[in-house]
Design a protein around this nucleic acid. Structure first.
Length: 591
RNA sequence: GGGGGUGUAGCUCAGUUGGUUAGAGCGCUGGCCUGUCACGCCAGAGGCCGCGGGUUCGAGUCCCGUCACUCCCGCCA
């Protein structure tokens, strides 16, 4: 007989009746009846009830076991009597009568309860992640993640993509996120960087003559975390294709994403991946990652307020402000309007104007100043009905759009307008190629310096840089940015010119991007791609609100691994080898 | 870097207008119990109320500071 097991804890059934089995696992729970003890033994596969009474010599061992101890049990499979069958358990028709038990590893008193559905605090869960992961939901989430990645891999290979591995130690690149740096022992004073994404590598794969690239790629960015953004590292389904236009990339990616969501989620999936221009999205939804489950569209009503008797807005408009109107379906009550107003103030806005549409008139201070006629014009333009309200954000364009967007989400959430059983995808297209830094006034790449400008060289030469759009797109699902991609530039002249507009001379391009610019000069295929975030996909499918729930060993919000105690101090010897000396500025705690 | 929330037993949490000895469930220790499956019953141990300062006759509770965790803004081409 095998040293540890003949069966796992999820597979013994009534057909095994009277046979001798050996199973190993963790003591999930004990029910001690004095002269009779039940032990639920758990492993990765399931739960099996084992039973022993005082007539057996192993009884005292079983009685003294603490939860989560690891044991090996040998015994005979017994069919349970009809009145003791547990229908909630796959193995509920049988139990194992314990003949022998070996304690493989005894457990101390636990810092968190594995057999409970109740979450412990984050800090405890992360420090003892190996215990947390024994619990059903975290365990299932990680299994799901593995299955999703396998499905993605199969689908990509099916579509003719080849999987590549790109370097983890590479060169730091300007722009973008903060790099993680790795000192180069053999080159004093020089550093490798961990890749923020395999962006240049995947383009170079295309220039190396491979046609379709993909990778489940680790990406490293030294930026602060969020609920949907893990600190430090995350994974992308990175892909790139040669000789394609935007529509070809969409056509390749849509079925993969749709297929994976359909395969692993019970939720409905809207099959229509609508295309929304960046400009439209900013106007109608107030951001570039709209949650289309919220049935509210923002409108511009600057012209209605311009020169009106509502002087606060009218004066701001003269100074260049715009007014965005956010419909509030069935929000026509003073209480809701006041609540929205104080919410806006808590968000740092001066307030949120509103009009309430009653049975026969438009009410509220704004309506009073604006007059019934103009109020009704807004009502008509935004398709509002009696009992609805409309809220106003008046500010400089970007600020007004942002506040209106947040108000739209607030209304959608508060009024329970979001269908939680639905996934709604959309493509955001036509991103601007450049944008102006508000502080410095400098023109910068708005997304990715390697994107192809719409109109190519001609656009760069003839258009206002801020008017130029790029073949740049995002895939958004339920208000979460899943993916970013672009048709890339493959022409050296366009690269030099684009960087020139952003204030970088040709020498900068040659020095910082020698591989790219070099490859462009030796025959580069037109190409494009995209990189959906694996973690966010799993998060959506697992219906978890926090990205840590679907990461095996996540770091906390301050980018610390509490389980491994990373980051940590290192020996001076290590530092010396790396030609590194610490120069800590104002240490918070003396070390 | 900035703002909000939280911090009480090993874990999850309650704790009134400031008032005597800070509670519950789970877990832990001991006892009873032969058909439970979140077993039940009895008893017990376990607390720098995050930390420091202040107000007060008296602080878990009020004030100031600080630390930790968390959410958000900034940041994330």
């Amino acid at each position: 007989m095998h040293l540890y097991r003949t069966h796992n804890c999820g597979e013994i059934s009534a057909t095994d009746e009277n046979s001798q089995v050996k199973i190993s696992g963790w003591v999930h729970r004990k029910r001690d009846h004095g002269s009779l003890v039940f032990v639920d033994l758990r492993d990765h596969f399931g739960l099996t009830q084992c039973v022993i009474d005082t007539s057996d010599s192993a009884f005292s061992i079983v009685e003294s076991l603490r939860n989560e101890s690891v044991v090996t049990i040998t015994g005979i499979v017994k069919k349970r009597s009809d009145d003791t069958i547990n229908k909630n358990l796959a193995t509920g028709e049988i139990e194992v009568a314990i003949a022998d038990i070996i304690v493989q590893s005894a457990a101390d008193t636990l810092p968190l309860q594995v057999n409970s559905d109740e979450d412990a605090g984050e800090e405890t869960r992360l420090r003892y992640r190996y215990l947390d992961l024994r619990r059903s939901r975290p365990h299932q989430n990680i299994v799901l993640r593995g299955q999703i990645i396998q499905s993605i891999r199969n689908r990509m290979i099916e579509l003719g993509f080849t999987e590549f591995q790109t370097p983890i130690l590479t060169a730091s690149s300007p722009e973008g996120a903060r790099d993680f740096l790795v000192p180069a022992r053999l080159h004093p004073g020089k550093f490798y960087a961990l890749p923020q994404a395999p962006q240049q590598f995947k383009q170079l794969v295309m220039m190396s003559g491979f046609d379709k690239y993909f990778q489940i790629a680790p990406c490293f960015r030294d930026e602060d975390s969020r609920a949907d953004r893990s600190p430090g590292e995350f994974y992308q389904l990175d892909l790139e294709m040669s000789f394609v236009e935007q529509a070809d990339v969409f056509a390749a990616v849509e079925p993969v994403i749709k297929g994976v969501f359909e395969e692993f989620s019970e939720r409905k999936i809207d099959p229509d991946f609508v295309h929304i221009s960046y400009a439209d999205s900013m106007l109608k939804y107030g951001n570039d990652k709209p949650d289309l489950r919220i049935p509210i569209e923002i409108g511009d009503v600057t012209d209605v307020f311009a020169g009106s008797d509502f002087s606060i807005f009218a004066k701001n408009i003269e100074k260049g402000a715009v007014v965005r109107a956010i419909p509030g379906p069935k929000c026509g009550s003073r209480a809701i309007a006041d609540r929205m107003n104080s919410w806006a103030q808590s968000e740092g806005a001066p307030g949120l104007g509103y009009i309430i549409f009653g049975e026969d008139e438009a009410r509220g201070p704004v309506a009073k100043a604006l007059g019934q006629e103009k109020s009704n014009e807004i009502k008509t333009r935004l398709n509002l009905e009696n009992g609805d309200a409309v809220f106003f954000a008046c500010a400089a364009m970007d600020d007004a759009a942002s506040l209106a967007g947040r108000a739209r989400i607030r209304i959608g959430t508060e009024q329970k307008l979001i269908d939680e059983t639905l996934f709604k995808f959309c493509w955001i297209v036509d991103f601007p190629m450049f944008e102006k830094d508000e502080q410095t006034g400098k023109i910068e790449f708005s997304h990715n310096p390697f994107s192809m400008p719409q109109g190519g060289m001609d656009a760069l030469d003839t258009q206002d840089p801020l008017d130029i759009k790029a073949w740049q797109y995002d895939l958004v699902c339920n208000g979460i940015e899943l993916s970013s991609g672009a048709i890339r530039n493959h022409l050296p002249d366009v690269m030099y010119r684009a960087f020139d507009i952003a204030g970088y001379g040709p020498e900068v391009v040659d020095e910082k991007f020698p591989a790219m610019i070099g490859a462009f000069k030796f025959g580069a295929p037109p190409h494009g791609g995209i990189a959906p975030g694996i973690d966010r996909m799993v998060m959506l499918i697992a219906e978890e609100p926090n990205i840590r729930e679907i990461i095996l060993f996540p770091m906390n919000g301050k980018a610390e691994d509490l389980m491994m105690s990373a980051p940590s101090l290192v020996d001076d010897k290590q530092l010396n080898e790396l030609h590194i000396r610490k120069a800590i500025i104002q240490p918070k705690t003396p070390q």
